[in-house]
């Protein structure tokens, strides 16, 4: 086996190793990026929520923060990863979600359906505008001014984080 062949094999091995390690790192990045953060206004004193409370909040059952500040739900439209995570959280289909909120309004349990915003920028603006606002946002889209809160004591990216 000549020097050329050994060099070739080494290069090949290095390339494969690099490819595999890069792939693993990318898989980690994808896992983190796929997490959905729960964000509130930076002025909101809340730091953590249980998954059960989060579910009650997005179902409109829990309607105020512990200090009495009214909760304002800010959501993304159908098809967004945040919407998918929301429906998963509530164990509803898109149709069931719409019917549920129509029912909540007619029951008098809500004034209106949750606010739907078309972009992360407006999502951030809504968080600034409503002190009691809460929203779901893909981790990669978290912006300065959005306060990420823990769910069941875990931040996005942690193993076992429930929203992804």
């Amino acid at each position: 086996m000549g020097v050329k062949s050994i060099t070739t094999l080494l290069l090949l091995g290095l390339a494969v190793l690099s490819f595999v390690s890069k792939g693993m790192a990318q898989a980690e990045d994808i896992a983190v990026a796929a997490d959905i953060a729960v964000v509130v206004s930076s002025s909101n004193p809340a730091t953590t929520l249980s998954l059960g409370d989060l579910r009650k909040i997005f179902a409109g059952v829990k309607r105020s923060w512990p200090g009495g500040l009214p909760i304002k739900l800010v959501t993304r439209g159908a098809g967004c990863p945040e919407r998918v995570a929301l429906l998963k959280l509530l164990a509803m289909s898109e149709g069931e979600y719409k019917q549920y909120w129509t029912s909540q309004v007619f029951r008098g349990e809500a004034d209106a359906e949750p606010l739907i915003v078309p972009s992360v920028g407006i999502q951030k603006e809504a968080l600034n505008l409503f002190p009691g606002a809460i929203s779901l946002v893909s981790v990669r889209d978290v912006k300065p001014g959005m306060k990420v809160i823990k769910i069941d004591g875990q931040m996005p990216g942690a193993a076992g984080y429930p929203l992804r």
Binding site: M155, P156, G157
Partner: peptide, 10 residues
């Protein structure tokens, strides 16, 4: 803006 410092990767 994290509520507390954590080792979570964001």
């Amino acid at each position: 803006t994290e509520s507390e410092p954590t080792g979570a990767t964001v």
